[in-house]
Simulated assay, not measured.
Amino acid sequence: MLLACAPADAIGGGGTNDGTHGGTSHKDIYASATYSRIKVRQVTGPTGGKRGVLSSVDVNWEPPACWYEPVFTGEELKAFVDKTDGNGDVGIHESWFGKELWTDHYQDGKPENNFDDEHSTAKGYKDYNVDENGYFWRSVAPDTSDPKSWDCGKIMFWQDAGQVPKIAHAPTPEMLADYAYNQVKVPDTEIDSTPATKSTVNLPTWVWLDKGTFREIKVRAELPRTNLWAETTAKPVALHLNPGTEDAETYPSSGDCTINEDGSIGTPYAKGNADRTPPCGIRYLRATNSRPHRLKASITWQITWHGSDGSGGDLPDGIFETTQDMNVQEIQSVNR
């Protein structure tokens, strides 16, 4: 019999089971406290093409580092212990190797210490509570190297069905909304421009984004066996242009191009508009030599959420940025 206090991903690999990634076995998911049972799916918005995740504009905002969620019924825990011979995670940073550890606590009622700062006592159970209606809950941490993952130090505990435990780091709709924030996949910011990749000194480059690509995106996160869910919505609200050099002007001068009423950004270039000022664009003042300018285009996404209990609100705006090369040429003239 051996008790090991170790990172939870020592058993069954690491990562989260967010409903969007494969490659984990049923046994791994139930053995490891790094796998969440939260199910995430995109409800609305574009799904094809190259996509990426958002970066919060609030440097102090971060997704939840740990939480508790239901894992086993009494019968399921008993079957798990018998099948694995008692090898698995009883908490984020506590793994039990040896069947007797599990049977002592969950079958024969022996108390154990929680893995929290107070080393509080966890009461034991009789025969895995197989005659009770409820679930054993366990802590979850997507990243066990995060120091805040140690905040969820209770070993696996029982909660009656239809109830969420009234403890710190219990799941809430807002927590699910925060979790879903990192699951929002937005389209790559591939801007259209005229000229496309080669601009001319002192002539404006028109920039725009298609209304069909940048649509509102809604992601739903649900935690099975709790009736808790939240929907997190990302809405594009602005495009910011950074020309990649100080020898340039942006339109508007702030570089912030707002979203039009139809959902597009900027205005496509039309023949005859070469001398007009674009509503969204750049004017380069010097030609490039061997190195093109690195034009940065970043979309600001406004993030809101609402949950199963009627709660809701705002989350920090998200940014998605890409870069593309821009060559700038001089106008060639011949004098006779």
Rank of each mutant, 00 (worst) to 15 (best):
N289P: 04
Y135Q: 03
G88F: 02
I319H: 04
V186N: 11
D178E: 12
I331S: 12
Y35E: 08
N327K: 12
L54F: 11
K110Y: 06
H119V: 08
S55L: 14
I331W: 03
T200G: 11
I155D: 01
P292W: 08
T73G: 06
G49W: 11
L54Q: 11
V184M: 11
A10M: 00
P111F: 02
D143A: 12
S308H: 01
G86A: 03
T322A: 10
W137R: 08
P173A: 11
G255R: 13
H169W: 04
W158M: 05
A287E: 15
Q159T: 08
T172E: 07
I259S: 04
T233E: 01
E76S: 15
V130M: 06
T194P: 01
G48E: 15
W301R: 13
S32D: 12
D131H: 03
T189C: 13
W102K: 08
M326K: 09
A177S: 12
P278E: 15
L54N: 09
R283G: 10
Q332V: 01
K271Y: 10
L101W: 14
I217A: 08
E69V: 05
Y251Q: 10
V53Y: 11
S32F: 14
N273P: 02
P147V: 00
Y269N: 03
S311N: 02
P252N: 12
G255H: 14
E231Q: 02
A79V: 01
T44V: 01
W67S: 07
T103D: 14
H293N: 12
A234D: 01
D108G: 00
A274V: 07
